[in-house]
Simulated assay, not measured.
Amino acid sequence: MKKRRAGATETFGISLDPETKQFLREEADRKYQGNVSALITELAKEAKRQAAFERAWKWYGGPEPTPEESAAIRAEWAEGWTLASKAKKSRRKKAA
Results as ranks from 00 to 15, higher is better:
Glu26Pro: 01
Lys94Arg: 13
Ala6Gly: 06
Lys93Tyr: 06
Gly61Glu: 03
Ser15Ala: 13
Ala72Trp: 02
Gly7Trp: 03
Trp81Asp: 02
Ala96Arg: 10
Ala56Pro: 02
Asp29Lys: 00
Phe53His: 00
Lys21Glu: 09
Gln50Arg: 14
Thr11Pro: 11
Lys2Gln: 12
Trp81Phe: 09
Ile40Glu: 04
Asn35Ala: 12
Asp17Cys: 04
Glu46Gly: 12
Leu39Cys: 02
Phe53Gln: 00
Ile40Gln: 00
Leu24Ser: 01
Glu19Lys: 10
Ala6Asn: 10
Lys93Pro: 02
Glu10His: 08
Glu46Ala: 09
Arg4Glu: 14
Pro65Asp: 09
Lys94Gly: 07
Pro63Ser: 13
Glu26Asp: 07
Ala47Tyr: 08
Pro65Glu: 07
Glu64Leu: 10
Tyr32Glu: 08
Leu83Met: 14
Pro63Glu: 15
Ala52Cys: 01
Lys48Phe: 01
Glu27Asp: 07
Gln50Gly: 12
Asn35Lys: 13
Glu19Leu: 06
Gln50Tyr: 11
Thr11Lys: 13
Ser90Cys: 09
Lys93His: 05
Ala84Met: 11
Arg4Thr: 13
Leu24Pro: 04
Lys45Trp: 04
Arg5Trp: 11
Arg74Cys: 11
Lys94Thr: 12
Phe12His: 04
Glu76Gln: 12
Ala6Leu: 08
Glu42Gln: 12
Ala84Asp: 08
Asp29Phe: 02
Arg25Lys: 15
Glu64Ala: 13
Ala6Glu: 11
Ala52Asn: 10
Arg4Ala: 14
Lys94Asp: 13
Glu54Phe: 00
Ile73Gly: 01
Pro63Leu: 11
Thr66Ser: 15
Glu68His: 05
Lys93Glu: 13
Ala44Asn: 11
Arg91Tyr: 14
Arg5Gly: 14
Lys94Glu: 15
Ala78Tyr: 06
Met1Cys: 00
Arg91Met: 10
Pro18Asn: 09
Ile14Lys: 02
Glu79Val: 03
Ala78Gly: 08
Ala52Lys: 06
Ala96Gly: 15
Ala8Asp: 15
Ala84Val: 03
Ala51Ser: 13
Ala6Arg: 11
Pro67Phe: 05
Lys45Arg: 14
Leu43Asp: 04
Glu68Gly: 05
Asp17Ala: 01
Glu26Thr: 02
Leu83Gln: 15
Leu16Asn: 12
Thr41Lys: 06
Thr9Leu: 10
Gly80Gln: 09
Ala44Val: 10
Glu46Met: 07
Ile40Phe: 01
Lys31Ala: 15
Ala6His: 08
Val36Trp: 03
Gln50Thr: 12
Phe12Tyr: 04
Glu19Gln: 09
Thr20Lys: 06
